[in-house]
Amino acid sequence: MCVAIPGTVIKLDGTKATVDFSGNIVNAEAGLVNVKVGDKVLVHAGCIIQTMDEDMANEMEELYKEIEDLA
């Protein structure tokens, strides 16, 4: 329902962004977020719906910590 993958903003022109997904260049709307060139973003149906935390490397570590209290 919500096919969306992360990409990197390589160009910004007002509310129009150019996003790079491992070499796939897609024009996406940037009117719903505050972004700058270099930001990692989540794009759904040609629209940036969210910016992503740069610190993705730690995300899984954080997740495991989150569920530790449930063990």
Binding site: G31, L32, V33, Q50, M52, D53, E59, E62, I67
Partner: peptide, 20 residues
């Protein structure tokens, strides 16, 4: 309740999108 997708999901969400 738990949020296990914090890299993308905040508790408030995307306010600009919601306003639009």
């Amino acid at each position: 309740y738990k949020n296990l997708y914090k890299s993308v999901v905040s508790e408030a969400g995307n306010l600009q999108a919601k306003e639009m």
